[in-house]
Design a protein around this nucleic acid. Structure first.
Lengths: 169, 169
DNA sequence: TATTGTTATACTCTATAACTATA
DNA sequence: TATAGTTATAGAGTATAACAATA
């Protein structure tokens, strides 16, 4: 348990982080805003899924997810095929063109980070990653305490499902 | 210099951070959205200043800052007094009512963090603060390389000016 | 001419609520 | 009745550009 002044300092850092986020957003292609990029990234990382699952990973409302998905689907970056197990659902899948778009975005963003964080050590980048993952987990845990395993205790970080989506299926 | 996979992981954490930010925003009073809270916080931390300075600290365009300032001024939380040294400018100052509002917001947000991060050590909270401050600095440095001291090298964190605004002046 | 600040406009992201279709 | 998804609407944040007043 930390002191109040430390929390206030942390909150200021949260606020200032917006500037970093906006600079990252500025290098996205104009036809692929942040929401679309997030959809492509999560589909590339976790593989095919339905909208409700994507909404959970994005941590936004399903209605928001639906709009992002429509945007990327209209550009041919994903396909929505019917779910044989549930006719209400559709399964989202990255298309080859979507994978290309994702690769391009990943290339741009990692280059920006490599440039900005050129004087950071490998370990420092890892530390920031880990702490931010844990921060997200700490907030998630409090959201639905009943729907989670008893005591996570450890440092569990990012992906709950390290699935890898096959490139160009 | 870190590996590409590490940067990609960090980018995913940046994206996921939005959920934390939104949850923090949800506990703000409805008449004091995030932009207004940021104005009050920075005025409380750095003391009286003009809009252009505030825009720099917020790292947003001055037009955006102007709107936020108008919002808080309309509610009597700050005063805009003429700058004797430059008739184009006005000096922003927190009012007692603004200070009360700020205290209330700080109380709510620190309580939320204290609850969510109850199992974090003092040191871990400090680490995250430091790394996020350095992240922001790394991005700032690249924005206007000519307008900065030659080689910051160190871990310099948050406030460039640790001024403290007198409470209830 | 350059700078400070304001306003108008447009775009992105988000949540809530109402709705359809299916379970 | 409950759930998956869509759409309409509203609100917050931001950037760009045009503008006024002053330096």
């Amino acid at each position: 348990m930390a002191e109040k002044a430390q929390y206030e300092e942390l909150i200021r850092q949260f606020s200032a982080f917006g500037a970093v986020k906006r600079e990252m957003g500025r290098l996205l292609p104009s036809d692929c805003p942040g929401g679309s990029a997030a959809v492509l990234t999560l589909l590339g990382r976790h593989g095919d899924m339905r909208i409700s699952k994507l909404a959970e990973l994005l941590a936004v409302d399903m209605s928001v997810t639906s709009r992002h998905v429509t945007h990327v689907a209209e550009r041919g970056w994903i396909e929505r095929s019917p779910d044989p197990a549930d006719k209400r659902s559709r399964i989202l899948r990255l298309t080859p063109r979507g994978q290309d778009r994702l690769d391009e975005i990943a290339e741009r963003t990692t280059q920006l980070l490599a440039h900005r964080l050129s004087d950071w050590t490998d370990d420092e980048v890892g530390q920031l990653s880990r702490l931010m993952a844990r921060l997200r987990a700490s907030f998630d845990d409090c959201r639905s305490p009943a729907a989670r395993p008893p005591a996570p205790t450890g440092d569990e970080q990012s992906p709950r499902e390290p699935l890898v989506h096959p490139v160009h299926p």
